[in-house]
Design a protein around this nucleic acid. Structure first.
Lengths: 229, 229
DNA sequence: ACCTGAACACCGTTCAAGT
DNA sequence: ACCTGAACACCGTTCAAGT
């Protein structure tokens, strides 16, 4: 008899919804999140969610932003002593760690920051720190972009997981070099991490070489150092 | 009266289905592809598709593989004269071009080669060519992986498109360095291509530096050059 | 304001029935 | 073998109705 349509204290909140949605995504993947299923986990009926979010996409955006919020940005603070290269490295490692902890969220996150606050904070911090380090703004934009390409690409397309653990799938006549490919699945973590480390190092080495030419020159003219001491 | 359940010539074929699905994905995105809608475009009822594909996922896999088949692999042929660095560069450019022509397919493709023949041919060609060039097999695997991270990441997460074309979205107090972010959307293509070029160059520069150390040494011992002339 | 059930217009997939 | 309509168990979202 106490089944009222509206309780005194709200049953739902944005936080509770995002929490349940995150748990569901992590446990069973994006496809497992339906408004009815999610509402069920929260002990509530489907349409109730629409009192707190405009639609399902907004819920998943919030889930993705919660992951972005876990990315360490301390290396980009002005008070931090790390140089731009080390900062970029440490950030990329932290970024990737956040994504690989929630692999099912990566497709949502990879679409770009959009209006998600935590993702925007990330973009802002990287860009600001690179400019402060002496990179011309156009280059700083590119660095933010290409680092995101690499990190999200590495988290989304786990290379090793992309192969099937089935020897017969890789006909040695058609794919003469893939004789060991079915073994990749087993050593997934090791291979993806090795590829990530190798690529990150190469990327930073290459950027450092470019920095010699373009950034030093820019700091000499002073054009890109309005905020430097 | 001629409405028979089964015509003399099949109405459908895998090719026709993949063609229609590709057109639909390119024109309206992945979400536009439902089995009923797709069947409708082909003048047929929904369940008919299941005579040619086991399920919808298999159809989208075929669509993705048709994109992979467009990637140029000629630079990896033994008869080709390009060195490993140039080959990797040209391949990455061709790979990215194929993906950006069909941006809605990238999420499917980014999951990895799985059992898709064209994607496997790509992985096979890269790995084989890198080993032939003197890279130790473990490094060749990593190179294939990290290049894929970067290329698919760049095609999936179009950096510039990821921002909203709305100045009010980027509060200058919270994001002090994103004052121009709303302009990114307009210059999307230019920025993404610049970031891709910069990143690709950095990546290859970095790998070349590493090649000096590891690959030359390997070729000296002869361990990784079983197939060399 | 916040929750409900009913309803609308969809889904992917199975299956017996047709030829 | 290959297509059909009917059916099953779902979707996301809207909305009037309740408190």
């Amino acid at each position: 008899m106490c089944r009222m349509a509206r309780p005194r204290k709200p049953l739902l909140s944005r936080e509770r919804i995002v929490g349940a949605a995150s748990a569901l995504v992590d446990a069973e993947g994006l496809d497992a999140v339906s408004t009815r299923r999610l509402a069920g986990e929260l002990g509530v009926s489907g349409p109730s969610l629409y009192n707190h979010f405009r639609n399902k996409e907004e819920i998943l955006d919030a889930v993705a932003d919660a992951v972005s919020a876990k990315v360490d940005l301390s290396m980009f603070e002005e008070s931090d002593s790390r140089d731009w290269r080390t900062a970029l490295h440490d950030w990329a490692v932290s970024y990737r760690a956040a994504l690989t902890e929630h692999p099912h969220v990566v497709p949502v996150l990879a679409r770009g920051p959009g209006r998600r606050p935590a993702a925007l904070r990330v973009a802002d911090a990287v860009f600001g720190a690179m400019v402060r380090a002496g990179w011309p703004p156009a280059q700083a934009t590119r660095i933010g972009a290409l680092m995101r390409y690499f990190v999200t690409g590495s988290a989304l397309g786990s290379f090793a997981r992309g192969f099937v653990d089935d020897e017969r799938a890789y006909d040695p006549c058609r794919y003469p070099h893939l004789g060991q490919a079915h073994l990749l699945a087993e050593r997934q973590e090791e291979i993806d991490e090795g590829a990530f480390d190798t690529g990150l190092r190469a990327l930073l080495d290459g950027l450092a070489a470019q920095y010699e030419k373009v950034a030093v020159q820019a700091s000499r003219t002073g054009a890109a150092r309005r905020d430097g001491p």
